[in-house]
Write a protein that binds this DNA or RNA. Structure first.
Lengths: 106, 106
DNA sequence: ATGCTATTTCCATATCTATCGAAATTGGGT
DNA sequence: ACCCAATTTCGATAGATATGGAAATAGCAT
């Protein structure tokens, strides 16, 4: 993963509203969630939500799929994995880091 | 970890210059690196560097220690671990994510 | 005390971001 | 064709961020 891309993804997640949004999509699992449903959970105007969502999609952290008039959004796990992997690689260049990461997965 | 704190750390890392800066500190290991040395590697004005560094310190990703006139900076591994752990927890609520994270550690 | 080096703070500014109401669009149903 | 619901785009604004030159500060050495 390129540093630029990692930074873009980190920045995308580095906003409380978007991180919350991403969390919601992760918890929704493979079924995903319609934009409207997400809006119900976040209670923000649709235009604001759309902007945030676009950011997550553009950086590859979320995918979208049309189903009739609704747009289903899903957390893109591989994208997140790549990002976590990048961070782990950067961090775990020093061995002192590895145990705690292992713990996080346990 | 609170969502707000995670978002702040992600935002801090979500800037190419700061991510590069953090990388440099990680690779420097436990010895850390003086601000001046970092500046030599990044080739940016000291005031700009100082701002970015402050951001990383404020969010708990970097620590600093005075040694005479120079300031030694170190990547704060536990801080990064907590962040990676948070992301992994959010992401790996779904099992489909776990294998790739494991791979990143291998 | 003076000077030297390292680093930060002050200040200014250009750019980017977050927010959201209103209007436009998209994609079926009827 | 028309309408309705879902979602996006447009346009505007307040505030945050990134950047860096210049001045201030910190901490030793002499």
């Amino acid at each position: 993963m390129k540093l630029e891309k990692a930074a873009a993804q980190l920045e995308a997640l580095g906003n409380p509203t978007r991180l919350q949004l991403y969390r919601i999509l992760v918890r929704a699992g493979d079924d995903g969630l319609a934009v409207g449903s997400v809006q119900g959970k976040l209670d923000i105007p649709s235009s604001t939500l759309s902007h945030h969502l676009k950011r997550l999609v553009d950086t590859g952290l979320v995918t979208q799929e049309r189903q009739a008039t609704t747009l289903i959004c899903r957390a893109n796990y591989p994208g997140m994995n790549a990002l976590i992997g990048y961070l782990a690689d950067e961090c775990c260049a020093d061995a002192a880091c590895a145990p705690a990461v292992g713990k996080a997965l346990a």
